[in-house]
């Protein structure tokens, strides 16, 4: 099995941790995901790639149950069995004009590498991140550096603007968007703009490589698997 070595594993926000792994791996695509084997759990845990370069990548994960709790105990130097390069990822090259990247909660994680890719492609980019509260915010500094404009919303108003990420859509000038976050946020984003874009979906998965049909969704082009045809889908493919 593909083994990686933990180089960092630390909290970056309330119950949110960042793990950096290294191993024999090419630079993973933004928006693709990996599956971490957690000793003591039967199934692997899927996580989007947050940042990646040749030989290393990071994931950002929230403690939501037994598996992610066990992962906080992975120590630097420890070997971890990870399947990498799963799913299709974001296609940054499809952005044209000005780009908007929108993240909600943990959905901000895969946008880090995307912001780097857009920056490298010299695409003018605005980042909008939505969190429940100030303690949930992570990677704010990275987006401020990489993007031309960076806005943060919290539901309770404890940091940045108060409200939902879609509140600023009218004041923003963009031609293409990328979004990742909870399903209600993704639906709201898709409904709030007529512009084209790509949305990354989350799903409870069995395998993560397309054989169990656990994460299927109905799309405008028939049934698709979040783990295989996704997790990133073009807006016009999604039936909402």
């Amino acid at each position: 099995m593909p083994l990686f070595s933990v180089t960092e594993n630390q909290p970056v926000a309330s119950a949110v941790w960042r793990m950096v792994l290294q191993g024999d791996v090419p630079a993973l695509r933004a928006g693709s995901f990996v599956e971490v084997a957690v000793p003591g759990c039967y199934l692997r845990r899927p996580f989007s790639v947050s940042t990646a370069s040749a030989g290393t990548f990071s994931i950002i994960y929230k403690i939501v149950g037994k598996g992610t709790d066990l992962m906080t105990h992975f120590a630097p130097g420890q070997s971890v069995d990870v399947l990498v390069g799963l799913g299709n990822g974001f296609d940054a090259a499809r952005a044209h004009g000005r780009a908007l990247i929108v993240g909600g909660g943990l959905g901000v994680a895969p946008l880090c590498q995307l912001a780097k890719d857009l920056h490298a492609l010299r695409v003018p980019t605005t980042f909008v991140g939505g969190f429940n509260t100030a303690a949930d915010i992570f990677c704010e500094e990275e987006f401020r550096i990489l993007c031309d404009e960076s806005l943060v919303y919290t539901l309770d108003g404890s940091a940045g603007r108060k409200g939902l990420v879609t509140a600023c859509f009218d004041e923003l000038d963009f031609d293409y968007f990328f979004a990742c976050g909870p399903l209600p946020m993704l639906k709201a984003v898709a409904a709030a703009t007529p512009k084209p874009g790509q949305l990354s979906l989350e799903a409870r998965m069995g395998c993560g490589y397309g054989v169990c049909m656990g994460c299927s969704i109905e799309t405008n082009r028939g049934p698709m698997r979040v783990c295989k045809e996704g997790p990133v889908f073009e807006k016009e493919v999604l039936p909402w």
Partner: peptide, 20 residues
């Protein structure tokens, strides 16, 4: 057949439940 609505997978001790 599209099958059942999701979630279709639930983990369990020593295995999983599926309702694909």
């Amino acid at each position: 057949r599209f099958g059942n609505p999701t979630p279709r997978i639930a983990e369990s001790e020593g295995g999983l439940l599926n309702a694909v």
